[in-house]
Simulated assay, not measured.
Amino acid sequence: MNALTDELSTAAIAGEPGALRSVYDALAPRVAGYLRAHGSADPEALTHDVFLTLYQRMPELTGGAAGLRTFTFSLAHARLVDELRARQRQPVSVPYVPEDDHRASDSAEAVAVRAIGSEQAVALLESLNEGQREVVLLRVVAGLSLEETAATTGRSVGAVKQLQRRGLLALRTTARAHGVTP
């Protein structure tokens, strides 16, 4: 994974194609992880939408790498909120046609063994309140600094610190109670 630096940000803002690709390589996996963790129906499509918007608005950016990262996750958050609101208004309904389904099914045991890790992680995150979950995902999954997380969520740095501390303590307690950690 490429590191996002101020020099890379400056080159990307100037429109250098290689720099734009490097910005994408540095941030896209974290953006997709953030969107996936929040339940996006299509995190890859939203990630691409975030970067299309980012590239269009790149000349307006300030703040170097930190500003670019903060703006990127602000876009991701806005796109996620839009998707979730749209889903609430009009759920997606796709008819099932058995004749067109050519998938092979794994055994129930194989599916359970594969899914248990991610299910436990999602269940642990769901045990947090919305503010704690938001801050923990931005800080841990997205790798944002306290200041970047505060800017993205519209909270003070102190509030972000408290939400992170309380969220991590709650995760530790819940994980121990469910035997997830030693």
Score class of each variant (00 low, 15 high):
Thr5Ser: 11
Ser9Trp: 06
Thr10Val: 13
Ala12Cys: 13
Ala12Leu: 13
Ala12Arg: 10
Ala14His: 13
Gly18Tyr: 01
Leu20Asn: 06
Tyr24Thr: 00
Tyr24Asp: 00
Asp25Asn: 12
Asp25Thr: 09
Ala26Thr: 09
Ala26Cys: 09
Leu27Val: 12
Arg30Met: 11
Arg36Thr: 15
Ala37Phe: 08
Gly39Cys: 07
Gly39Gln: 05
Ser40Gly: 05
Asp42Lys: 00
Glu44His: 03
Val50Gly: 01
Gln56Lys: 10
Thr70Lys: 10
Thr72Ile: 09
Leu75Phe: 05
Leu75Trp: 06
Ala76His: 05
Arg79Ser: 01
Leu80Cys: 06
Leu80Lys: 02
Ala86Ile: 05
Ala86Pro: 13
Ala86Phe: 03
Arg87Pro: 08
Gln88Phe: 05
Arg89Leu: 12
Val92Ser: 11
Pro95Lys: 00
Val97Pro: 14
Asp101Trp: 08
Ala108Cys: 01
Glu109Met: 04
Glu109Tyr: 03
Glu109Leu: 11
Val113Ala: 08
Ala115Ile: 03
Gly117Val: 15
Gln120Glu: 08
Leu125Ser: 10
Ser127Leu: 06
Leu128Phe: 08
Gln132Ile: 06
Val136Glu: 05
Val141Phe: 03
Leu144Ile: 04
Leu144Gly: 03
Leu144Val: 08
Leu146Tyr: 10
Glu147Gln: 11
Thr149Ser: 14
Ala150Lys: 04
Arg155Gly: 01
Val157Glu: 15
Val157Cys: 01
Gly158Glu: 14
Gly167Phe: 02
Leu169Ala: 08
Thr174Trp: 02
Ala175Glu: 14
His178Gln: 15
